[in-house]
Amino acid sequence: MDNKEWLLKVENLTKIYGEHSVNTLDKTGPLFNSNQCPETGAIVACANIDFTLHPGEVLGIVGESGSGKSSLVNLLFFDLMAPAGSACLKGYKNDNTNILEVSNQQKRFLRNHKMGMVYQNPRDGLNFRFSSGGNIAEKLLMAGNFHVGSIRERASYLLESTEVPVPRMDETPESFSGGMQQRVQISKAIANNPPLLFLDEVTTGLDVSVQAKVLDMIRRLQQDLNIAMIVVSHDLSVIRMLTDRTIVMKNGRIVEKGLTDQILQDPQHGYTQLLVSSLL
């Protein structure tokens, strides 16, 4: 792919919990099969993460639990503060501003206008005290739409395209099934047509038929709206179905990256081989 065509450039992203020494990064990682520093006990959530995301591309992040894949998207969506590294977003302030270091107001602007996030648990992404329409309205209001009529129109359109029954839009997500809650969350995430969407284990915890439906819908939305996505999953079949390129993470580091098909067919790193071979 053309190198000039990029949407998100992440360089040297690092997140360490606790006090770390100069050796912390050298003495942790897949080589030591640990992300805890033997000297200080600091936990390395992720370290030296570099990647580039292209417009409209779907990037998968796969790894076992504790490998830092969720930390990575949480850092990029500003749920966690990053102590080191940089991330630049195309089309935001000359393309070369580190979005991890801008003010909270600017971060909220980015979250509302340029990004969307779908969490594993709908309770993280939705406010269960507001109606489903209200949850979508929150995003639209923050983008400066103060017309109730047009908010409701947009919310119904979004719910319709994610197959949530529109007559139920004024109910709270509490009364919905898990799959429906997840679809409301997706509607909210894409409400302002963001160029970038994060999906953090969206199908985990849903039963298989609903899983298939949600995945199908995500793929359709991706093709219709051409949204770039970062899909985090420990489930290789989700990765295979959705993504073009994949990053494999272990102990907070990237151990392998490449085209999804290539990684699944011909895994190079020992951990990836283990992961692929244990696919049922």
Binding site: N127, F130, G133, E138
Partner: peptide, 9 residues
């Protein structure tokens, strides 16, 4: 945002 949503609700 939350204030506005409560008015919307």
């Amino acid at each position: 945002a939350k204030m506005w949503v409560s008015l919307y609700e």
